[in-house]
């Protein structure tokens, strides 16, 4: 057993193995852990970009009791023995975070009412908690045209927050990355540069890792507000991936397939394009039962009126009560 390191975050302590980041430790502690818009634990090299996870290190370590001079990205900063961290308890952190959220929103379109991602958008959730009403931004917002990148994915660049997740996902999950970040500064964009299609196997996962509605599933049948559809754990036997997915149903029709996400909003098991895009028949899947989306989700929190589901499906009735 390695020596565990003790870290205290907002007054609560936990022991973690060396190499653990502040964010990972905070997630283990539960409660109000820092948000993360760019870091993705299963994708190497992600993190450090969005800056919403900034925290204050009030004591660097047992042997070095000094605070760190600046706020640090909790997704990348590793825990040291005796480190003391302030997240929610630091007004400085909250102010910085509100600032970052404001920056993320100034060029983001205010089109939640027509965005497919509404209801499952990390930015929307974040701005609930850290945003202020209205905007101080009076300048023109950045805009791009919506484009189809291949048969499966639509890119709505105007909504992108340049988290780079989709780039790392394409690099690490597919055999050849064809899209990336072009240009620089605030005119940077996600693009294939030439009219290239993103249809390498496993490329569909870029949709799931996108924290906003910039990358969406073109095969999403009769586009729906998510809270009008109902998520079910489903699986099929697949040679390429685990086949463990969520089937989003409207009535007894599957309108979309996604990967399953954990409590931190990260995909548990990346799925192949065939499972995601090609199997939309109920008969393709074994439905395990309704997916618990967690308490915070609008999908389960009754923030919106849920439609009555007619489960003409071979599911166990006890799962379908709501």
């Amino acid at each position: 057993m390695e020596n565990l390191l003790k870290v205290t975050i907002d007054g609560k302590s936990i022991e973690v193995p060396p190499g653990t980041t502040i964010l990972q430790a905070a997630r283990q502690l539960g409660g109000n852990y820092p948000p993360a818009m760019c870091y993705y634990s299963s994708l190497k090299d992600t993190g450090g970009k969005c800056r919403v996870c900034l925290v204050k290190v009030a004591q660097t370590s047992e042997t070095n009791p000094r605070p760190m001079p600046k706020l640090v990205a909790s997704c990348l900063t590793r825990v040291e023995q005796g480190m003391v961290v302030e997240n929610q308890s630091s007004p400085e952190v909250l102010e910085a975070r509100n600032g970052v959220v404001e920056f993320l929103l100034i060029n983001h379109p205010l089109d939640c009412p027509v965005c497919d991602q509404a209801g499952e958008c990390d930015l929307q959730n974040l701005s609930y908690e850290h945003g202020t009403e209205g905007t101080r931004y009076e300048e023109q917002r950045r805009e791009f045209n919506k484009i189809d990148i291949g048969p499966y994915v639509q890119l709505h660049m105007t909504r992108c927050i340049l988290c780079y997740r989709c780039v790392y996902a394409a690099e690490q999950l597919t055999d050849s990355r064809v899209h990336g970040v072009l240009n620089r500064g605030d005119v940077s964009e996600i693009s294939t540069y030439i009219q290239n299609a993103i249809d390498k196997d496993f490329s569909g996962n870029i949709i799931d890792v996108c924290p906003v509605g910039a990358l969406t599933d073109k095969t999403y049948r009769f586009k729906q507000r998510v809270w009008f559809s109902k998520p079910f754990n489903a699986h099929r036997s697949c040679a390429k991936c685990s086949g463990q997915t969520i089937a989003w149903m409207k009535g007894d029709a599957i309108i979309r397939i996604t990967a399953r996400k954990n409590a931190f909003g990260e995909v548990e098991d990346f799925i192949c394009n065939e499972c995601r895009f090609e199997h939309k028949q109920l008969s393709d899947w074994t439905i395990e039962g309704p997916r618990d989306m967690g308490e915070d989700s609008v999908i389960s929190a009754n923030k919106y009126e849920l439609p009555v589901i007619s489960p003409a499906v071979n599911v166990d009735a006890k799962f379908v009560s709501e």
């Binding site: 064809v178 072009l182 240009n183 620089r184 540069y193």
Partner: peptide, 12 residues
């Protein structure tokens, strides 16, 4: 290298 790696650099 991949073509996109060249485009990424050339446009930066």
């Amino acid at each position: 290298i991949k073509p996109i790696e060249v485009y990424e650099v050339a446009t930066f």
